[in-house]
Design a binder for these strands. Structure first.
Length: 674
DNA sequence: CGCATTCTAAACAGAA
DNA sequence: CTTCTGTTTAGAATGC
């Protein structure tokens, strides 16, 4: 959004002094945004804008949350202690003092949570007076809130772990891993946020929390309600779990700072050493471990030399972070500390629930993601604010490229989001120049095919370089040649963005045509036309392609491979997101296989020169593309010019050399000419 | 830091 | 003379 406006500034700016200044500004935005979404740059620059939606909310809400709860907690402190004492006195006459003191100190909280669960309401009533009950209720609620937060932290860790594990199993590339991490983190935040809201809502419903709707409501208000209420999980960990909680410290530092509540909790917990015997009573609900605990660890079980519960020299058992020098020691520790006993069983159960919960969440989230993607993808084809007029008039009036959409309308653009590579396009694209896709040899064609409606109508700068755009324009014609003016027309026809600032980009186009060897000027009967020398074009690719933009890569890989497991990916594959699932995005070679489509498919039906693009080139539907992509498993670094049309060379990756023969031969004379 | 790439701006020349 | 086309240079931003 910010980028958008920034770009607008530039565009509207006559080009004078504003030019450089604002450009640098955009560049920052663009580049940073590119890395963006994830990068710290984004945060620093404009935390409130884009990337924050996930990251920012949680802390903010937590803050509210804490502020809200603080008074309550304090007010209840006395009652709580009283209750605790009572509870302990009742349920644990003192036989297990020693044991209690150990766990009690750390987890007095859980006690309060537990006790009610272990005692039936009737029992409670008998034991406690109404005021006490009320106090207990409130106390519970307060504690729940606290523990909720603790749980979120835990959950975050777990999820992260899970994702990392998944990606490892998937043999992801390092770079992709980065993307995964980022995405995972975002999802964690998202998830946490959701859970928080969910719980808040629950609590509200119960009248336990008097949260103002505004506080509880966020962008993700209508969350799918998870089946399992995890509220009671953390306490188990804490209660049964290990002594220290360094793990949480590390989490705290991650931005989702819960210190506020944490300290509160500890200060609460510290004083009273009281605490009923939770350990024994806690597990009574001894529901048979229906699901075997190994479910979650099974995903790990990989290298014999390591242990899924052992990493970085410490025990990864939930709540336990005991340091173990080596695997042997760890095994020993595992056998002694985490033997098959009530506690371990309970913890396993907890972990199971956590996993289940996460899975549910994951399912929900992926579902939502699909819906979002589907929605965004459909968008362009749907009636848009300024689509109608622009689409038509633009095509007709492009000769000049001066279709001045009402300057005002152009600026906002907001309603639309670039589908497909949405964020990448938006951020990196912006007015900035970080064109992403052109580095992937030419997903441009596919991306364009998918989103051309979008770019056509939205005043968004396409995330492609001028060179790639020019090339695309030329290749889209049957004879692969265009006059300069036709190139101009193509630009204006295909991109709303290029209907303004004509002087600038036209200059750029000319500049690019002259500058790049890949563009060959050919004298023609009716003047000069420009063609593309694929060989040259490809020549300059290699160096770049290897270092394709990390951002885009991350985004894509993260999106498609990171947080979503295979099944979800499969689902995605069927959804309208060919690009994200296209192996080509990770493998330029196969991506290139898409390009040909634009040649043959577009070329045939569309009359090139007649210009007046009144005819929107019949493009392949996304599904078709995705199909293509899936079918095409051509990792070979095929040239983007392996046209599907001529069935001549089925698998002919080896001769990737001059795939352009046809063209090149035709073009040869021209090449010489120039 | 250096290099490569890209974008923008601008000067300039030749042709229409 | 103006406009279009094409070439070239320069500066800035960005990523590797």
């Amino acid at each position: 959004m910010m980028v958008e406006s920034a770009s607008e500034t530039i565009r509207s700016a006559p080009a004078g002094q504003n030019g450089v200044g604002s450009i640098s500004g955009q560049a920052d935005g663009g580049g940073g945004a590119g890395a963006a979404g994830a990068g710290g740059g984004g945060a620093g620059r404009d935390p409130a804008a884009g990337a924050d939606s996930n990251g920012e909310m949680s802390p903010a809400e937590l803050l509210h949350f804490q502020q809200q709860q603080a008074p309550v907690l304090q007010a209840l402190q006395v009652a709580r202690q009283l209750l605790l004492q009572q509870a302990s006195g009742l349920s644990s006459p003192g036989n297990n003092d020693s044991k209690q003191s150990a766990s009690a100190v750390q987890v007095p909280v859980s006690v309060a949570m537990m006790s009610p669960q272990m005692l039936t309401p009737q029992q409670m009533q008998q034991i406690l007076s109404p005021p006490q009950l009320q106090a207990l209720l409130q106390q519970q609620q307060a504690l729940m809130l606290q523990q909720l937060q603790e749980y979120y932290k835990k959950q975050q860790e777990q999820l992260h772990l899970q994702l990392l594990t998944q990606q490892q199993a998937g043999k992801q590339q390092p770079k992709e891993a980065l993307g995964n991490k980022q995405l995972a983190f975002q999802q964690q935040l998202l998830q946490m946020q959701q859970l928080q809201q969910q719980h808040l809502l629950n609590l509200q419903r119960q009248g336990l929390v008097s949260l103002q709707p505004s506080q509880a409501s966020g962008p993700l208000q209508t969350l799918p309600q998870a089946a399992v209420c995890p509220t009671d999980l953390p306490q188990l960990w804490k209660g049964e779990g290990a002594p220290g909680q360094p793990a949480e410290d590390s989490v705290k530092q991650e931005g989702l700072d819960l210190t506020g509540s944490a300290t509160t909790a500890t200060s609460f917990a510290a004083p009273p050493k009281v605490s009923p015997p939770l350990s024994h009573h806690t597990l009574p609900n001894g529901q048979p471990t229906v699901l075997t605990p190994r479910r979650d660890s099974s995903s790990h079980e990989e290298t014999p030399g390591s242990h899924p519960l052992y990493g970085h020299g410490e025990c990864k058992w939930p709540g336990c972070e005991t340091l173990c020098e080596d695997l042997g020691q760890f095994i020993k520790h595992l056998n002694t500390e985490h033997a098959l006993d009530d506690r371990s069983t309970a913890q396993c159960r907890v972990q199971m629930q956590v996993v289940q919960q996460l899975e549910i969440q994951l399912a929900k989230e992926s579902e939502r993601l699909q819906a979002m993607m589907a929605h965004l993808h459909m968008r362009p084809s749907e009636p848009k604010p300024f689509s109608q007029p622009v689409t038509v008039s633009a095509a007709d009036s492009f000769p000049d490229g001066l279709v001045h959409p009402p300057t005002s309308a152009a600026a906002p653009v907001t309603p639309l989001r670039p589908p497909g590579l949405s964020s990448a396009s938006l951020h990196s694209g912006g007015p900035a120049r970080r064109r992403s896709s052109d580095k992937f040899c030419s997903p441009i064609s596919s991306e364009l095919a998918q989103n051309h409606e979008f770019y056509k109508n939205a005043d968004v700068r396409p995330p492609f370089t001028y060179a790639s755009l020019i090339r695309q324009a030329i290749l889209e014609t049957p004879d692969r040649q265009l006059t300069l003016n036709e190139i101009y027309n193509w630009f204006t026809r295909m991109f709303a963005y290029f209907r303004r600032n004509t002087a600038t980009w036209k200059n750029a186009v000319r500049h690019n045509l002259s500058l790049h060897k890949c563009f060959v000027r050919v004298e023609n009967v009716k003047g000069a036309v420009w063609t593309v020398d694929e060989r040259e074009y490809q020549k300059r690719r290699p160096p770049k392609m290897t270092g394709s933009p990390t951002l885009v890569k991350n985004m894509i890989s993260g999106l498609s491979y990171g947080a979503l497991n295979a099944s979800y990916q499969a689902a995605l594959a069927e959804s309208s997101f060919p690009l994200l699932n296209s192996p080509g995005m990770l493998n330029p070679g196969s991506a290139s296989s898409l390009l040909p489509l634009s040649h043959d498919e577009v070329g045939a039906p569309v009359e090139p020169l007649p210009s007046n693009g009144s005819s929107s080139p019949p493009r392949l539907s996304p599904s078709q593309y995705s199909h293509q992509v899936q079918v095409k498993e051509e990792p070979a670094e095929a040239e983007e010019d392996r046209r599907p049309g001529p069935p001549l060379g089925p698998p002919n990756p080896s001769t990737a050399g001059p795939p352009e023969d046809r063209d090149l031969e035709e073009e040869l004379p021209g090449e010489e000419l120039s």
